[in-house]
Design a binder for these strands. Structure first.
Lengths: 205, 205
DNA sequence: TCCTTTATTGACATTGTGTAAATAGACGCA
DNA sequence: TGCGTCTATTTACACAATGTCAATAAAGGA
């Protein structure tokens, strides 16, 4: 007696992958990526540790997959950047930053995991930098150029450098505030970012 | 024949520590922190791998020690922040940012290693955040408050939030530019940062 | 009922970490 | 010069986490 082992359950590959990803996201809700091990994630599923490697290359593979899954949401956001042109562009700064802040709050644990994993994995560093940072930075640069062409923004602005700096600021600052604690008051956070963006881009107050 | 092993050499603890730190810094000059292993570092010294643990707790210990060693340089820089008050404060922005940029260029590999190691080690994360970021952010916040009291800066500015955001921007942007490649032209980098700082803090262009 | 397919696992090889007992330079002293 | 102590250093080991592979057992079709 007592030697009966739990019978295997067989899932579809899609279900297994979902189960593992769900376990990982749950884990990341209260512990940082650096503490995530394959063993601990798989202990939260009905699968054994080696099963993990049938679906992901390594623990960074989890983050890579998660990053793909938020791709569409990101696309929505940077469409917002590009469409808010013309005379209403200035008014759109706050609204856009509110949207971005909401995204960083809603997806906090995931985004923090991505940022952390980027330090430890070349490929995620690349995906993060080019699929996220640069993408936004280019959209902003483009908009600055447009604003300059329309006489709305100072031609003295180094469009590319300023665009990248503003995007990096926004990313780090939101990771540090709303992503760390989605309960905090957004108002002063968005207010501070809006002030910096507006004063930088539109010169006089 | 052929079985003579290299004789042990005995160093003073100070010399051994210096030798290990030197090996680690050399390593970091062309490879990222994520690839640094105790074995590889010690292979660049005349010591065996276990000797490492007589001087450092783990590979993060290397970075902790390096961080202590740049402490004095950092102190010089943030004294600069605080002293440049009064009427010349605005003119001092560019000069200060030039100094900070030079620091990020000179200490690029080390600072990048610190930033990377902070993702993987709770204590370095703390040291980095409180010993560096917060320290600068508080100095800036203080200066904004002073500027507001003197009527030089808009009282509408959220001093604390804006201070933190500007510092995070400067750190990330410099890590991404001059620390990655100390050969690049500083001019546009410093120019972009100066523009953002000045427009944010001093309102009209 | 048997057979094929393939999701899953047990067992193993590997890599990097961290520790402790054993070894051997270096220095002080007779 | 030789002896003994101190401690820097290494050899040998235990451990944790990773990643692989051949063997196993569900599930579905013939």
């Amino acid at each position: 007696m007592g030697d009966e082992r739990a019978p295997r359950r067989r899932r579809s590959p899609e279900e297994a992958e979902r189960e593992i990803l769900y376990a990982a996201e749950t884990f990341l809700q209260d512990r940082p990526f650096r503490e995530l091990t394959v063993e601990e994630v798989m202990a939260r599923t009905g699968l054994s540790r080696p099963a993990f490697y049938a679906y992901f290359r390594d623990r960074y593979g989890l983050v890579r997959r998660m990053l793909e899954h938020v791709g569409s949401e990101l696309f929505e956001i940077d469409r917002g950047w590009l469409e808010g042109v013309g005379e209403n562009s200035r008014l759109g700064v706050r609204a856009t930053l509110e949207g971005v802040a909401a995204f960083f709050a809603r997806r906090g644990p995931l985004l923090r995991a991505v940022a952390d994993a980027a330090c430890g994995d070349r490929e995620i560093e690349r995906l993060y930098r080019f699929g996220l940072i640069e993408r936004f930075a280019e959209a902003v640069t483009e908009r600055i150029r447009k604003g300059q062409a329309e006489g709305e923004m100072s031609p003295a602005l180094e469009a590319e450098a300023v665009g990248l700096a503003l995007v990096l600021m926004t990313e780090r600052y939101l990771l540090d505030t709303v992503s760390r604690d989605p309960e905090i008051d957004f108002e002063p956070v968005v207010e501070a970012l809006t002030t910096i963006w507006e004063r930088t881009l539109y010169e006089s107050d």
